[in-house]
Design a protein around this nucleic acid. Structure first.
Lengths: 159, 159
DNA sequence: GTACCGCTGTACACATTGTCCACCTTTTCA
DNA sequence: TGAAAAGGTGGACAATGTGTACAGCGGTAC
C-alpha cells in the first residue's frame, strides 16, 4: 500500500504551493511538523517523490513546437545504442521503446515547424534508425498531471 | 532572447540540487544572492520555470504501466468537450490534439496490463470517441528531461 | 553626458530548518 | 494477555536562510 490519505493531502498541498515549507504545511494540515518531515522523507525514499526540481517550460525557452516521432529501427543492434545516440539530440525530450508497429516513440520539441524538420533529420540520421513518422501536437488539451492519480491512489487503499 | 549563460547554470544547479536554497546557489555560482533571487523571479515571471512542485512517479504509486493511446473522434462536437471528459479519468496523464491519422494522443498509466484494459475501456466509452489504438511503453529509454534544452538555449543566444 | 539597468556587498529582523527529546496511542506478534 | 515496535505529538535548541532594503558601481542606450 503505497500512500494514505495524509500523504495524498500532503502531495496535493505541495503541488499547489511548493514554496510553503514544512512548518507551514504542518499548520495547514493540522499535524505536527515532525510528521510532515517524516512523511516527506518516506515518500522520497519510496520514490513517490522523485524530486523538487524546477519544472521548465520548453515553450518559454523558445521551443514552441512539440511532436511525437515513431521510429522504425534496423533490427540489428537493438534499442539501447540507438537510445544512447538519440540522447545526444537535446530536442529529444523523452523516448520509449514500444509495442506495435513502431520500435520507439520519442517526444521532441523544436523552435518552429521548419526547425522541426532539422530535428527530424538529425533523428533519421542517427545510426540504427530506419524511418520516422511524425505527428505534431496542435494543442495540449490536458497538460501533464499526476494529482488525479495521487487522489486515486490515496482513496483506493490497496490495488 | 529568453535566457543567458547564468540562467542556464542556475537552472542546471537547481535541477541537480533543488534543496540548496538561494544563498547556497549564489555561493556556488559566485554571484550575489540578490542576483540569484532576481534571476529566479524573472525566470518564473517569464514562465520558463513553471514551478517547483514535487515530481511524482506514477510507478511508485503502483501505476507501473505506461501507454500511448491514439484516438479517432466523431467529427461532430470538436476536441474540447472530449478532452474535458477525458480529464475525468485520473489515469489519463496528458492529452494532445494532433496532426495525422489520429485526432488525439493521450498518455495513460495503469496498474497492470489488465488494468490498462479497464482504462482503455473507460476512454472508449467517453462520448465523442470513435476508436482508440494503443501502444504500450516497454521501457523508458530517455526519461523526461529538459536540461539539454536549457543548455542549448543558453549557449545559442537567439534563434 | 545623463538616465537607466543589472550586479555587488552589506545589513537587519524574522521565520524556518535540522535535530533532539519524552510521552502517548495503536498495531503487531509471541 | 502482555510487551515490543511503529508512528504521531508537542516542545526545545542552535544554526541557518529568507525577505527586504540600501548605496555604490559599471555598462549601454539615447
Amino acid at each position: 500500500m503505497p500512500i494514505d490519505a495524509l500523504d495524498g493531502r500532503l502531495l496535493e498541498l505541495f503541488a499547489a504551493e511548493p514554496r510553503i515549507g514544512v512548518l507551514e504545511a504542518s499548520r495547514r494540515l493540522g499535524v505536527a511538523r515532525g510528521t510532515v518531515q517524516a512523511r516527506l522523507d518516506r515518500l522520497a525514499r519510496q520514490g513517490v517523490i522523485r524530486g523538487f526540481g524546477p519544472e521548465i517550460d520548453p515553450a518559454a525557452l523558445g521551443y514552441a513546437v512539440t511532436a511525437f516521432v515513431t521510429l522504425q529501427l534496423r533490427q540489428a543492434g537493438g534499442h539501447d545504442p540507438v537510445a544512447a545516440r538519440l540522447a545526444a539530440v537535446p530536442e529529444v525530450i523523452e523516448a520509449h521503446t514500444i509495442t506495435g508497429g513502431g520500435d520507439m516513440l520519442c517526444r521532441v520539441v523544436a523552435r518552429s515547424n521548419t526547425d522541426l524538420q532539422r530535428v527530424i533529420d538529425m533523428i533519421v540520421a542517427t545510426g540504427g534508425v530506419e524511418r520516422a513518422s511524425t505527428v505534431i501536437s496542435l494543442a495540449n488539451q490536458i497538460p501533464p498531471r499526476t494529482l488525479p492519480l495521487v487522489r486515486a491512489a490515496a482513496a483506493h487503499p490497496a490495488s
